[in-house]
Amino acid sequence: MNTVERLILMANQIATNLATDNAPVAAVADHIQQFWDPRMKRLIFAHGTDGLSPVAAAAIGRLADAQNGA
């Protein structure tokens, strides 16, 4: 498993476990923001949404937008 594959696995795992949160997308985004180092974030932003669950993809999209000042 390469690093990006591992990050996809991690993001999906986080999304699955936070699925019962009241606001799962925000919870996943907050978790990744708090615990992933900048390079991990950069790699997953650059990767796009392939292989990501809808909640994980939305959360990462939200983080990427925030980083890009969208």
Partner: peptide
């Protein structure tokens, strides 16, 4: 202000050459 690498992430980053 950004979090750093966890041990498994250090090892991944090492394999990636960074």
């Amino acid at each position: 202000p950004e979090p750093g690498l966890r041990i498994p992430s250090m090892l991944d980053a090492a394999v990636d050459g960074v």
